[in-house]
Nucleic acid binder design. Structure first.
Lengths: 135, 135
DNA sequence: AGGCAGTTTAGAATAATTTTAAATTATTTC
DNA sequence: GAAATAATTTAAAATTATTCTAAACTGCCT
């Protein structure tokens, strides 16, 4: 009864020193089967519930944070004070629709940044994030 | 006892259909005397307290939201789930230091954006926000 | 199978913000 | 200028998102 992608996810978890527990495998299944997803703890909880998988909200938060920490997810903060998690961990940018809170990925190469200002004093640039807000 | 800048702030408030109450005048004084400030409800509350002005936290939140609504402030959301308010309402970008949560303004002209992707279907671009995250 | 460490869980705790309804204060009217 | 009116402020409760706690559970190693 163990599907192919389930085994992939078990390996993925092991590679990141995360025990492949039932709930982590289920969440990996929801997150990593589609190519690029944007979820919050609540949207993910709704999906989990829709599949009838029993899981506490604390586990969803813990798992999102763990996946983030090991680099399987990327965290984004937008207007509403809710954490979004993006399964696309490549460097990229976003369209954001403030009406629906929808996010759409933009590959890093699709936006050309010319003439970035110097970082202050001894600091360096870690990353440049562009959000194109839609009307 | 009414200072020049206080009268300016009273006019500013009136221009935006906000009654010049004691607390709105005090907050305008703290916010709009310096050229460009980044505050949160809590940092502003600390300043208010330091000046010995009695004011409830709810009023600070209400006022920040009202100033924002009429365009006197601009709201920014960053890593920590706290709302920042920027007294610079021109279109501009930011350096952000995740260690200290400091924000530094970057004038819009200092960043050249080439080749923005098309907005999806019938949507249009409202604004482009660039955050340069420092390490 | 047994034991241990890592996980999950329900529920309490925390943090940021908003709401409520009563008290206060700025404006309007006389 | 004082009374009436409507907007504002306030303390406290409510709400929302998230984290923490300590007990129960489960994967893993032998």
């Amino acid at each position: 009864m163990t599907t192919v992608s389930e085994n992939d996810h078990i390996n993925l978890l092991r590679q990141h020193d995360l025990r492949p527990t039932r709930q982590r495998i289920a969440l990996a299944g929801l997150l990593f089967n589609a190519p690029c997803r944007h979820v919050t703890a609540e949207t993910l909880r709704a999906e989990v519930a829709a599949q009838g998988i029993p899981m506490s909200l604390a586990t969803i938060y813990n798992t999102l944070n763990q996946f983030s920490r090991v680099g399987l997810l990327h965290e984004i903060n937008l207007d509403d004070n809710v954490r979004y998690f993006d399964t696309n961990t490549d460097h990229h940018h976003h369209f954001f629709d403030p009406k629906t809170n929808d996010l759409i990925d933009i590959p890093a190469g699709a936006i050309g940044l010319r003439s970035l200002p110097e970082a202050p004093d001894g600091r360096s640039v870690e990353r440049v994030d562009v959000v194109i807000r839609l009307a």
